[in-house]
């Protein structure tokens, strides 16, 4: 028998957990992401005429299938924001930025995205922002960020 003292410091090792998930898109979300690749923002119209952005396959209130895609933006209004002073390596910008709820012109609901404002002082609820597209778009939600308009 080997007697070991209690509460020795446990061994630790750096460990990066990675998964290379590829997700299939149905017809509606394929239309949404294809439009992003082509630098267009598409919401989806509900039966009551309200427009959701990002597009969704179902009306969140009635569960009806919905598929009428309509163009919105590229201008929008910041409804709320949180300032990230120290971005993490995974996050979309290496410099400080804001996560924001942005309501695009023509959409009835705000959605989560990123505002590249340069400094916290430039952020305000109600401010106008405009989508700025990446040089290379791929059909993904990070093909653009917002900047103050």
């Amino acid at each position: 028998m080997t007697k070991q003292s209690a509460a020795t410091e446990a061994l630790t090792a750096p460990h990066t957990l990675s998964y290379t998930y590829k997700r299939s898109l149905g017809a509606v979300m394929s239309g949404f992401f294809t439009a992003l690749r082509d630098r267009r923002l598409l919401g989806v119209k509900r039966r009551d005429g309200k427009v959701l952005f990002p597009a969704r396959e179902y009306d969140p209130d009635t569960s009806e299938a919905i598929d009428e895609l309509v163009e919105v933006g590229p201008m929008g209004v910041v409804r709320s924001w949180a300032w990230v002073a120290k971005p993490r390596r995974q996050q979309p910008l290496a410099r400080p930025f804001a996560y924001a709820l942005v309501q695009l012109d023509g959409a009835d609901t705000p959605f989560l995205h990123v505002v590249d404002a340069g400094s916290e002082a430039k952020m305000a609820t109600g401010m106008c922002v405009r989508a700025r597209w990446a040089d290379e778009t791929k059909g993904a939600i990070d093909d653009f960020v917002f900047e103050p308009a």
Binding site: M29, Y99, L112, D142
Partner: peptide, 14 residues
């Protein structure tokens, strides 16, 4: 996972 997670919003920002 389609429209939010790829932006890696941390729980404190949310």
């Amino acid at each position: 996972p389609y429209t939010m997670m790829p932006l890696w919003p941390d729980a404190i920002s949310i």
